[in-house]
């Protein structure tokens, strides 16, 4: 059975799905990711689906499950690169992927994660100097 590779880049796990996944492969990915989040202590997951020409309800549900599991493990998931035709189809299908953050591409996804991390720490820094909002992102890397 094929397996989708999970890459670690800094504080982020990057998954780029390049194959037409069998359902089992999707479930395997779900497990692999949970293991890797715990093993690496990463706080962000980016799943690039720009190579997928369809997302059906099974894959959609798997993505939602991955997002929920990651959140429990203190990692934020961003799904990036969804094709327009896929998005239109999902809307028609009635699948709105609640709870999943999305971005247009990997770069914007990384920005989104960085911003999210920064926001989490601003709460703590609220009392301090405004400029210190910059530091957590830098400190984390």
């Amino acid at each position: 059975m094929e397996r989708v590779p999970v890459l670690k880049i800094g504080d982020i796990l990057l998954v780029s799905i390049q194959i037409d996944m069998e359902d089992q492969v999707a479930l395997q990915l779900q497990e692999d990711l949970a293991d890797r989040i715990v093993a690496t202590g990463c706080h962000g997951v980016i799943i690039d689906i720009s190579a997928l020409d369809i997302v059906d309800s099974f894959v959609g549900r798997t993505l939602a499950t991955i997002a929920s599991i990651s959140r429990v493990l203190d990692a934020e998931t961003v799904v990036v690169g969804m094709r327009p035709a896929v998005a239109i189809t999902l809307v028609e299908l009635g699948l709105s992927l609640p709870g999943i953050r999305t971005a247009l591409n990997v770069e914007l996804g990384m920005e989104l994660l960085a911003r999210h991390r920064a926001e989490e720490f601003t709460d703590l820094d609220e009392l301090g100097d405004e400029d210190e909002a910059d530091t957590p992102a830098a400190a984390a890397s």
Binding site: D56, A85, I88, T89, E92
Partner: peptide, 15 residues
């Protein structure tokens, strides 16, 4: 778009 819709429907029904 229609290709994508049809393939998606086929995937659902095959499953």
């Amino acid at each position: 778009v229609d290709q994508t819709k049809l393939v998606t429907a086929a995937s659902e029904l095959a499953r």
